[in-house]
C-alpha cells in the first residue's frame, strides 16, 4: 500500500468518525470535533482498517492526518 492509499484510508476513517469532510490538512487543532474520545475511536478504526497496532507511546502524538500517515508508514517500514 502506498502513501496515497494510506492517506485515503485515513481520510475515510476521519470522515466517518468525525462526520466532517477531512483532507490532508485536517488535525486536532483545526477541528474541535476531534476530542479525546474521538481520537481513540479514530485510532481504533485505523488499526481495524489497516490491521495494525500503534505503540502506546505514539498514540497521543498522532493528532493530524499527516502524523497518522507517517505513523502507519513507520509500522510498515522494514
Amino acid at each position: 500500500m502506498n502513501e496515497k492509499e494510506i492517506e485515503n484510508k485515513i481520510l475515510k476513517v476521519l470522515t466517518l468518525v468525525l462526520k466532517i469532510e477531512a483532507d490532508g490538512k485536517t488535525s486536532r487543532q483545526s477541528h474541535f470535533e476531534w476530542d479525546s474520545l474521538k481520537h481513540i475511536e479514530i485510532i481504533f478504526a485505523i488499526e481495524d482498517e489497516l490491521q495494525i497496532q500503534f505503540p502506546e507511546d505514539q498514540l497521543s502524538g498522532l493528532d493530524s492526518v499527516q502524523k497518522l500517515v507517517q505513523g502507519v508508514i513507520a509500522l510498515h517500514a522494514p
Binding site: 479525546s36 474520545l37 481520537h39 481513540i40 485510532i43 481504533f44 497496532q53 500503534f54 505503540p55 502506546e56 498514540l59 497521543s60
Partner: peptide, 9 residues
Amino acid sequence: DERTSGFSG
C-alpha cells in the same frame, strides 16, 4: 487494551 485506557476512558 492497556495502551489506550489513558485516552479512551
